[in-house]
Design a protein around this nucleic acid. Sequence first.
DNA 1: ACAAAAGTGTTGACTTTACACCCATGA
DNA 2: TCATGGGTGTAAAGTCAACACTTTTGT
Lengths: 215, 215
Amino acid sequence: MQVRDGSLQVLLWERAQEPDVHRWALPGGMLRLDEDIEHSIRRQLKEKVDVRQLAHVEQLAVFSAPDRVPGPRLVASAFLGLVPSDNDPEVPPDTRWHPVDDLPTTAFDHESIVRRAQHRLRSKLSYTNIGFALAPPAFTMSELREIYSAALGYSVSSTNLQRVLSRRGLLEPTGETTKPGRAGGRPAALFHFTVRGMQVTDEFAVLRPPAAKTR
Amino acid sequence: MQVRDGSLQVLLWERAQEPDVHRWALPGGMLRLDEDIEHSIRRQLKEKVDVRQLAHVEQLAVFSAPDRVPGPRLVASAFLGLVPSDNDPEVPPDTRWHPVDDLPTTAFDHESIVRRAQHRLRSKLSYTNIGFALAPPAFTMSELREIYSAALGYSVSSTNLQRVLSRRGLLEPTGETTKPGRAGGRPAALFHFTVRGMQVTDEFAVLRPPAAKTR
DNA sequence: ACAAAAGTGTTGACTTTACACCCATGA
DNA sequence: TCATGGGTGTAAAGTCAACACTTTTGT
């Protein structure tokens, strides 16, 4: 998934064969005997759709209903992969990015997989630093605000976004600023995330462990 | 998993054959063609170890490293299942409950699966009503306190536990009370959970949607 | 000077922990 | 009446959303 043109989008591939011809499917394929599933996902995205810049990949769920696809029983292990908004992989002609809120007719149970991914992403934006995987290496707070707004599906205040992320030590000014647009306005400071990999930043909303008595 | 004797325990089965003879393994088995994985798990627990009272079952993760078990490649889909502390299934002689903080030598990658399950449970105790699946149908706050403390691995105050769960509308007094022990003391009120299935009760720790303007 | 965009200060609402205190019972 | 365990009141700390206000730029 990626935030592009102000909305959260997912890369889908139009099936050319039965079953479910012309319906849109998630990229993926068969697992080789010598690789684990995450490795397989990365390989297929690279080989088939030229997506190499996955800033974050995580397991979503296994879909194992006996009738989820016609024909022989097939178990799917779904993953969520995030691409930073500044990259634009050259995808093949039969694939396209689709806004999550305006999906075409999907193949098999892929729509429910996309829904699950969207839900996971929304939740994690709140209690982890997962935003780093959607954002470019450096950004203004306005840009980050748009990314978060697109992914969450509602408007976020850049003021409060900055405060929340700063309090958690996730955000750091690079020192540089951007030029203002033609309309003028104060130049925006550039920020970047301090941590690369995903971390839980707000564990234990309640029922925290007892205070570690200082002294 | 279940809280028994004041600690969080997991049911393991001692392998009688190579590979990994005499090491302890999680219960499980092969997936049939006509069932989904959750159905399979419930079936195997029922048939093999007589565990029927699973108050909650959820997917944990897929383990797919090519060398996770010797021999032909085998992908495992791990689940977390919770048994309320008031039941004591009659398990076969080659299985035993083990405290998660004192595991025996486990087979294959099963220790990391247990760790993952423990982590998942701890997290969810904080932001969902998952405690209902560990507790008996009715309980005193002291009893619930012990269950939560065992599962979380640190001491929880029954005062605050009650308040947190009550505020969320998860807890309800049954009206009944218990007899005090021989040492005296005020009789404890009995409570039960208002909701049976798992629900997220504390979504959006931060970055909540804008207030739905009332009026 | 004015509009535009970015950033800061501040307030109020809400949670949650910690702890002092009160209540009901058996010996 | 005292010890014991259960339950309530309350204060202090922390977090967050909202919004007014200030800063910095281009025209």
